[in-house]
Each structure stands twice: as structure tokens, then as C-alpha cells.
């Protein structure tokens, strides 16, 4: 097998951020919300490798805990979207007819909505919380997966091995789960990893607008809120969280690219 550099690099990046997020308590040099009046807006130094913010909180520690939130939001939101998309795609592709028409029109309608404004509206009505953010990103992101799965199922279900399964008495559920889905999972995995990147970006955007994760809980997005007002005097508050978002998304995109190559 050929070396798959994209996959290797992507996994390394995400594994690094993942481990840091999981072991945040051990990695972070300070409490993420510990205020230090004597060290406001300190540039990167030995004591504070990435500097401090306007409340004197250690930026590195905040970003490490922020990684936890950002990655969790990305992964869980995409998990919700993927489950929903796979389920609806399978049902639509396998049963066809009216059910298919209904689900696919639903997809078309939701795709017509400007997602960001839909999310803004929902968040404005509900409380902005981590949980709500995950669910709302998940509920607005399943359509691509549903289409993908549906088209895979459509092309697979007439194949002879499916008829063979039916001939030995396999139920519809068994045919879908054992015979159809495994063949569709490759492309789903590719699009899901790509989706995690965009979900993290969306979370950052929402948090930046103040509609996502609420301070003092740190996320990469809401660290940037503060960066807005201090950009002129404290570049590090903008650059490091921005870089973290960029590298993470790059990592997920590389994994996605690598998986695509792996699947062929």
C-alpha cells in the first residue's frame, strides 16, 4: 500500500489536539479562569507561553480548555447530523416512493434556508448553551449525508448480493444494516470528517457573535470576542486561537482527503 501522508499528518494533528483536550487538567499550566490582576495583557513569555488576556488569564490554559469545548461541539454536532442523515438517507433510498419523495423534498427545503440565520434565530429564542449549539448545528447539517447515503443505497439495492440476502430470508433491517450500509459508510466517513471542521468553524463564528458558548467557559470562538477589542495592543489573543482553529480544520480536512484516497 502506498503511503498516505495526508491521513498520517491529519491524524497526528487531531490526535495532538484531542489528547490535549482530554488531559486538559494535566496540560494547562494555570486554571483557565484564574484572574491575575498583576499580569494583564502580558505578551508571550516563559511564565505565560502564549501571553495573558485583559483579565490576566493565561491564554494557553484557556485555549487548552477551549479545545475541549470546540472539539466536543464539532464531533457531537456532526455525530447527530450523521446519524440523522444516515437514517433518513437509508429510509429514503431503500423504501423509495412517497417516503423518498417526502424526505428529499424536506432536504431541499432545509437546504434553501440560510443555515446561519436559522441558527441565529433559534439561538436567539432558546438559551445559548453548549448543548443547544451542538443540537442545532447537528439538526441543520444532515442533508448532505442523507443525499449521499440515499444515492449509494439506490445504486446498491438492485445488486445481486442484496437479492441473495433476501432469498435466504434476511429482513429489511438486516439487509440495510448488514448489506447496504457498510458499503455506504466510506463516503459518509469522508464527509463527516470534513463536516467536523466546518462545525468547529460554525461554533467559533457563533461564539464570536456571542450566541455560542458563553463566557467564562472558554471556547476558541469566544476567546476571539475579546481579541476584537485588543487587536491593536495584544496580537497574541487573535493569532493563537485563530491558528488553533485553522490547524484543526486543516487536520480534519487532511484526514478526510486521506480517507477518500484510502477508500479509492
Amino acid at each position: 500500500m502506498k503511503k498516505n501522508n495526508a491521513l498520517a499528518i491529519g491524524i497526528t494533528i487531531i490526535a495532538f489536539f484531542g489528547l490535549v483536550a482530554i488531559f486538559a487538567g494535566m496540560c494547562a499550566p494555570y486554571e483557565p479562569s484564574a484572574i491575575d490582576q498583576n499580569n494583564l495583557l502580558m505578551p508571550p513569555s516563559l511564565h505565560h507561553p502564549l501571553g495573558t488576556d485583559s483579565l490576566g488569564r493565561d491564554l494557553l490554559s484557556r485555549m487548552i480548555y477551549g479545545a475541549r469545548i470546540s472539539l466536543a461541539v464539532g464531533i457531537i454536532a456532526v455525530g447527530i447530523a450523521t446519524l440523522l442523515g444516515v437514517f433518513l438517507g437509508c429510509v429514503a433510498g431503500f423504501y423509495g416512493g412517497m417516503i423518498d419523495a417526502f424526505i428529499m423534498r424536506l432536504v431541499d427545503i432545509i437546504l434553501c434556508f440560510p443555515t446561519l440565520f436559522l441558527i441565529l434565530a433559534v439561538v436567539a429564542i432558546l438559551e445559548p448553551s453548549i448543548f443547544n449549539i451542538m443540537v442545532i448545528i447537528g439538526l441543520t447539517g444532515w442533508m448532505g449525508t442523507a443525499r449521499l447515503v440515499r444515492s449509494e443505497i439506490l445504486s446498491l439495492k438492485e445488486r445481486e448480493f442484496v437479492q441473495a440476502a433476501r432469498a435466504i430470508g434476511a429482513s429489511n433491517a438486516r439487509i440495510i444494516l448488514r448489506h447496504l450500509l457498510p458499503h455506504a459508510m466510506g463516503p459518509v466517513l469522508v464527509s463527516a470528517t470534513l463536516g467536523i471542521g466546518s462545525a468547529i468553524l460554525l461554533e467559533s463564528g457563533l461564539s464570536f457573535l456571542g450566541l455560542g458558548v458563553q463566557p467564562p467557559v472558554p471556547s476558541w470562538g469566544n476567546i476571539l470576542i475579546e481579541a476584537k477589542s485588543t487587536l491593536g495592543i495584544a496580537w497574541w489573543i487573535t493569532v493563537f486561537p485563530g491558528l488553533a482553529i485553522l490547524v484543526t480544520i486543516l487536520g480534519f480536512n487532511l484526514i478526510s482527503e486521506g480517507l477518500k484516497k484510502e477508500i479509492g
Binding site: 440476502a165 435466504i168 430470508g169 434476511a170 457498510p182
Partner: peptide, 28 residues
Amino acid sequence: QIIFQNPYNSLNAKMRILDIIAEPLRIH
């Protein structure tokens, strides 16, 4: 039971032979 013409299409490529042959045994 039925045997189809094309043995390349009538086996699920993602399943091991054990699972393929055991499937009817499990179902019934």
C-alpha cells in the same frame, strides 16, 4: 434457495466467508 449467474456480484464484498455462509444459519 437460488444461485445467481454472477458469483462476482452475489456475495457481499465486505463480509468474511464465515459470516456470509453463517448468515442464513443466524437468520433462521
